[in-house]
Each structure stands twice: as C-alpha cells, then as structure tokens.
C-alpha cells in the first residue's frame, strides 16, 4: 500500500489545510467555537430583560477581565479566520470539481441552507463587522460614547435601546440574525457528521435538534430589537435623545 499518494509528506499542521477531510474537521471545530460563542452571546444579551443594572454590570464584568478578554477575543478571531478561509477554499475547490453543470438537475434531499452556506456566511461576516463597529468600537453613533448610568458605568442598556430604535438598524439586525440561524440550521448537525459523530440512527435527531436550536436562537436574538421597537424596553429617565 506504499503508493505515491501516501508517500506525499503529510506533516501535522499542514495536513489540516491540504486534506479535504482534515479541512472539514477544522471547519467543524472552528464552527463549534463560533456556535458556542453565539449561544453565550445570546444568553448575555438576554440579561437586558432583567434590567439596566444587570446588563451594565455584566458588561462591566466582561471588560474588567482585561488580558483574559483579549485572549478570548484572539482565540475567536483565529477560529473565525480559519473558518472563513477554509470555507472559501473548499467552496472554490467544489466549484472547480464540477466545471460544467447539468442542463437539468433535480435536488432530492438538500435544502436551501446547505446550498447557500457560502453566501449566508459572507453576509454574516459583513454584519459582524458592522455589529462590532456599532456596539464594541462604537463608531457609528457619537451618542454611544457619552452614555453612563448612575454608578458611572458605561450604559449598555441605553445604548442598545438607542441603537435599535432606528427601524433600519433593527431590520438589518433581524435579517442578519435570521441568516445566521439559517446558516446554523445546517451547520449545527453538519459538524457532527464531519467529525464522524453520526450514524443512521442519530441523523434525524441531530437534524431536528439543529433546526430547533437554530429557531430558538433566532427568537432569542430578535426578541431584543422587537422589544425595543414595540416599546417594551424603554430608555431610562435622564437619557436625552
């Protein structure tokens, strides 16, 4: 079994970006990290419903982690970069593998989420850039820098409400989160398949679980802009518009 294909040097870190299956492993693992972040971020965000004090204290706690915060951010950035890089690379390879398409082609099992992963992924990335500029860098709205609560903490609560009171920003956010959950409805079960943690029996459960999880996350995320637009979450007294 000593043929040239095996003989080709396949040292460890390199194989992760050269072999098709190893690339899928990296896609699954980095996707899992991003998925974990998205779940944690939603739980963090939902604290806004507990009240201004809770969410501001949570934000303060995160920011007081100092270097640890940057360690986590760095790890996330590395994962996202790998996910995008390999995702794009695999997509291009797969286009190249079928240079001429069919005049007629019927899809029997696949769905829209699976076929649009690269596009939903690209749009999610564009949204993430905007989202970071809006709420982390706070460069889209000059008012955000001047919001402080009575304890002198940065007033995240008012910032989110001010941001989402703009129907266009809320609308964009809802669409983007929808695309994210669409992406996840395929991604959540696919990572199990790619890592080999799937068989004929688990398949239906994993796919069902992915849909339910993605739907719950969608509802969780959009509840905030909807609550703001619906007037359920209001600016506290003393914050001038």
């Amino acid at each position: 079994m000593n043929n040239t294909a095996v003989a080709r040097a396949r040292s460890f870190p390199l194989v992760l970006v050269t072999s098709s299956i190893a690339k899928k492993f990296v896609m699954a693992l980095t996707g899992f990290v991003a998925f974990g972040y998205v779940v944690g971020h939603m739980i963090g965000n939902l604290q806004i419903f507990i009240g201004q004090n809770q969410i501001n204290a949570y934000a303060k706690a995160l920011h007081s982690m100092g270097p640890l915060l940057w360690l986590v951010r760095g790890f996330l950035i590395v994962c996202i970069v790998l996910h995008i890089w390999l995702g794009a690379q695999l997509r291009i390879e797969n286009w190249v593998a079928r240079p001429d398409g069919y005049a007629r082609k019927k899809s029997l099992k696949t769905g829209l989420p699976a076929r649009t992963m690269i596009w939903t992924g690209a749009l999610i990335f564009a949204f993430v850039i905007y989202h970071i500029l809006q709420f982390t860098v706070r460069s889209t709205d000059p008012r955000f820098e001047e919001l402080f609560d009575t304890l002198g903490r940065h007033d995240v609560y008012s910032m989110v409400i001010l941001g989402f009171q703009n129907i266009w920003i809320s609308g964009f956010y809802i669409v983007a989160v929808g695309l994210l959950c669409f992406h996840l409805s395929h991604g959540i079960w696919s990572m199990f398949q790619s890592l080999g943690w799937n068989n004929k029996r688990s398949e239906r459960w994993l796919q069902g679980f992915a849909w339910i999880f993605a739907s719950v996350m969608f509802l969780g995320y959009i509840s905030i802009p909807i609550a703001v637009l619906g007037g359920f979450l209001k600016l506290p007294g003393g914050v001038a518009l």
Binding site: L90, V96, R98, H186, W189, S190, S194, N198, N199, E203
Partner: peptide, 29 residues
C-alpha cells in the same frame, strides 16, 4: 470535491448506501 452534507448521494445511490457512512470514513480518517 468534498462533502458538504447535502445527502444527494444517498438519494440516488442504487445500492442505497447511507450518507452517514461518510461519518464512519471521517472517524477512520
């Protein structure tokens, strides 16, 4: 190309080999 879990293969396989077999290969790999 490489698998992106569309499952079109198992739908047309004349021997009805399940796509979850690919997960077995991934485990082996």
């Amino acid at each position: 190309g490489s698998c992106t879990n569309h499952y079109e293969c198992e739908a047309v396989c004349p021997k009805e080999i399940p796509a979850s077999m690919i997960a077995k290969m991934n485990r082996e790999y």
